[in-house]
Amino acid sequence: MLKRQVQDVVERRLAQAPAVALLGPRQVGKTTLAKAVAQQQPNALLLDLERESDRAVLRQPELFFASHRDRLLVLDEVQFVPQLFTALRPEIDAHRTPGRFLLLGSASGDLLRQSGESLAGRVSYVELTPLLVTELNPDLGGLQSLWLRGGYPLSHLAATAEASYTWRQDFIRTFLQRDLPGMGVRVAAETLGRFWRMLAHLQGQFFNASQLGLSLGGASHSTAVRYLDVLVDTMMVRRLEPHLANVGKRLVKSPKVYLRDSGLLHALLGIATVQDLQGHPIAGRSWDGFVVEQVAAQLPADAQMGFYRTAAGAELDLVIEHRSRKVGVAIKFAAAPKPTKGFWQAIEDLAVDRAYVVAPVERRYPLSERVEVIPVAQLSELFA
């Protein structure tokens, strides 16, 4: 079994906090990781809250929690039983020892709102992403396959490209028709699916709610924002906000949108093979989104990430701030990347400490004293 990068993080947090919430989209491997963690604790008990029999065990959660204070309780798909949060708060306060609860959830917005009401200071959050380059250490051929198929384990490990593509198509259908209604989302699957495909065509571009609403048949600005919120909260889409620096220039202030898994992006656009991808106009923006997610997964928990763009054309795909350090990132889909004039202007505007150009290259090399070209596999060194 492939050991995920965040497993050590989860185990450290459980040693420190009474509750850890492991967040990640459906089918990303949360349950598998939780079972690996639970194997280290013989008394651990795992409950799948999608199953009626396991939900029945928790009909009196206060009594159940109190009678299992000596065990790690793993509660899978906890967003299906939101009332549990009301019982968790007093139970954690009554017996505040580390490693009592591991909560698995597929809807970050629901969990974060609940924690704002009842679990602030009592739960530590960890995100499990689709598979990362740093977890697989692929050669360039393997990197291309990961980019095409995406990082969902069952998609990435499928026997053939066709089998992977079929799995992703089935995932999208099930997510829209079953998973979202199960989370209480009351939007027609066909409507939300059409909106999702529109976002796929807009990969890495600015989000214009009014324009998307019109494309949906005259829906309002607020309706388009609500649909985006659903896909952001279920960790399907990233809403990347601009880095608003005080540089005395006109800045672009609309967010960009990225589908977070490149494999799902390709499935929504009907891209089944490497040949289809290489000849598709979305290829460059798909690569951008793939790298954005790889970068985001490597950042310290307290780092801030956005993009920078001015009306005059100065641009960085990512600006990352961590404490007193600022790093700029340009993403290029080229074997011999050449940064634009806007890139050099942006690093001057923001006075970044370091800047990197991320590209499908095999080894890193310098472009200037503060700027390097680096492969995706070395993104973990951005804040080393």
Rank of each mutant, 00 (worst) to 15 (best):
M1E: 00
L2K: 11
Q7C: 00
V9M: 02
V9H: 00
E11W: 01
E11V: 12
R12Y: 05
L22H: 05
P25W: 06
V28I: 13
K30P: 02
A34D: 04
K35N: 05
A36T: 11
V37E: 08
Q41N: 09
P42H: 06
A44N: 01
D48R: 14
L49K: 05
E52D: 10
S53L: 13
A56S: 15
Q60T: 08
F65Q: 00
A66R: 09
A66T: 04
S67V: 00
H68K: 04
D70R: 12
L72T: 04
L73D: 01
D76M: 12
P82C: 12
P82W: 05
Q83D: 15
L88I: 01
R96E: 12
T97D: 04
P98G: 06
R100T: 00
R100W: 02
G109I: 12
D110E: 15
S115C: 03
G116H: 07
E117T: 06
S118M: 07
A120P: 03
E127N: 08
L128S: 06
P138Y: 10
D139L: 11
D139F: 13
L143I: 01
L146A: 07
W147Y: 13
R149N: 10
G150F: 05
G151E: 11
L157S: 14
A158R: 13
A158V: 09
A158N: 07
A158E: 03
A159I: 01
T160M: 10
R168I: 03
D170K: 12
Q177K: 14
D179M: 07
L180G: 02
R186K: 14
F195Y: 14
W196R: 01
W196P: 00
M198V: 00
L199Q: 03
L202P: 00
Q203F: 06
F207R: 02
N208A: 08
L212S: 04
S215V: 01
S215N: 09
L216R: 05
A219F: 15
V232L: 06
V232I: 12
M236F: 02
V237Q: 03
R238Y: 02
R239T: 00
L240C: 03
V247E: 06
K249E: 14
L251P: 12
S254M: 11
K256Y: 10
K256S: 10
Y258G: 05
Y258W: 12
G263P: 08
G263A: 11
L268F: 03
A283D: 05
F290W: 11
Q294T: 12
V295I: 14
A297Y: 07
L299T: 11
P300C: 07
A303K: 09
A303D: 06
Q304F: 06
G306L: 04
G306D: 09
F307Y: 15
Y308T: 04
R309V: 06
A311D: 09
A312W: 01
G313P: 08
H322I: 00
H322E: 03
K326N: 01
K326A: 08
G328Y: 01
K332M: 10
F333R: 14
A336S: 15
P337E: 08
P339R: 02
K341Q: 13
A346K: 07
A346F: 05
D353A: 05
D353H: 15
A355F: 05
Y356I: 04
V361K: 11
E362T: 13
E362L: 10
R363W: 01
P366F: 10
S368A: 15
S368P: 08
R370C: 01
R370A: 11
R370E: 13
V371R: 01
V373E: 04
P375Y: 03
Q378Y: 09
L379E: 04
S380D: 12
L382G: 04
F383K: 04
